[in-house]
């Protein structure tokens, strides 16, 4: 089990949080996604998963959710 914090840009509201959470939870092995929203700045996202995720997988999921990216 591993838990990693990511800095994410582009989040502005609760909808964004919902979108990002939904896409990351869809990744295999992910149990929990928590986002501390800071609108129009860098928000912190904590992902708990079986094994560490590749940055590529996280970036892809963020992009799938909308116009978000790793900072």
């Amino acid at each position: 089990m591993s838990s990693t914090e990511y800095a994410v840009t582009g989040l502005t509201c609760g909808h964004c949080v919902a979108a990002v959470t939904e896409e990351l939870c869809a990744l295999p092995g992910v149990h929990k996604v928590e986002v501390a929203l800071i609108p129009n700045a860098i928000s912190t996202m904590t992902v708990t998963s079986d094994a560490p995720l590749t940055d590529l997988a996280v970036s892809a999921a963020l992009d799938e959710a909308g116009s978000y990216a790793l900072a």
Binding site: G10, L11, T12, H15, C16, A19, G66, S67
Partner: peptide, 12 residues
């Protein structure tokens, strides 16, 4: 929709 990101999400 509350922000431009919402629009991007709906579009997707």
């Amino acid at each position: 929709m509350t922000c431009a990101s919402c629009a991007a999400r709906v579009e997707k």
